[in-house]
Design a protein around this nucleic acid. Structure first.
Length: 196
DNA sequence: CCGAAGATCTGCT
DNA sequence: GCAGATCTTCGGC
């Protein structure tokens, strides 16, 4: 584990996203190791930045390393880390390690595999809300340490989007029990399943 | 000015 | 596998 270099996030999100796998993400000392990320680029029709800067997505146009937190479906919060201008990496799941009892209480469940399974659950477990929007993830209450060694990485289609499904910008540690969904093998032509 | 859509999650069938 | 919960911005009329 080591410090994040100053220019780490000042790159294309599809390069940063796989490198965040295995990194430890803590918020006020609570969190664990990232096992699933997705990249959203500027000019990417699936990205919130696609139609330009607005009030709600302004953090996406902030400096690299900025936290972009948005509300999803009126209920959940989701955490992104801004990369080069107008792009970001969505943190989708992590392996809970520190503050397990706190996360259990926030999530009101006891199975650690479910604490941070999916972007909404992750934010509930780490107490990430709009209050953290616009803050730098290289500063408190955030703490990010990159993995000492690169873990095994696999890529697939992003989840829950209707546009931009062609890009294989979902990155996971294959076989991890903490993924929001398992990574499925490439879908044969003509299959009923579309999601990867 | 109004309403459709949305980077989700849970519980029930 | 699917519908419902729930809210806010922004795009279109």
């Amino acid at each position: 584990m080591h410090q994040v270099p100053d220019d780490f996030f000042a790159r294309a999100p599809e390069l940063v996203a796989p490198e965040l796998l295995g990194a430890r993400l803590l918020v006020d000392g609570c969190g664990g190791d990232i096992v699933e990320t997705e990249a959203y680029a500027l000019g990417d029709e699936a990205s919130h930045s696609f139609r330009g800067q607005t009030k709600s997505n302004a953090a996406m146009f902030g400096p690299p390393g900025t936290a972009y937190v948005y509300r999803s479906y009126g209920l959940h919060w989701c955490l992104n880390i801004v990369c080069e201008l107008g792009s970001a990496v969505l943190i989708r799941a992590l392996h809970p390690i520190d503050g397990l009892d706190v996360m259990a209480a926030r999530r009101r469940i006891s199975d650690p595999r479910l604490f941070c399974r999916g972007p909404g659950n992750l934010c509930q477990a780490l107490n990430v809300t709009i209050a953290l929007n616009g803050l730098l993830v290289t500063q408190p209450p955030f703490l990010i340490s990159l993995a000492a060694a690169h873990p095994e990485i696999a890529a697939g289609s992003r989840i829950g989007i209707t546009k931009g499904r062609d890009r294989k910008w979902r990155f996971v540690i294959p076989g991890s029990p903490y993924l929001s969904r398992p990574l499925r093998p490439p879908t044969p032509i003509g299959s009923s399943s579309v999601k990867g």
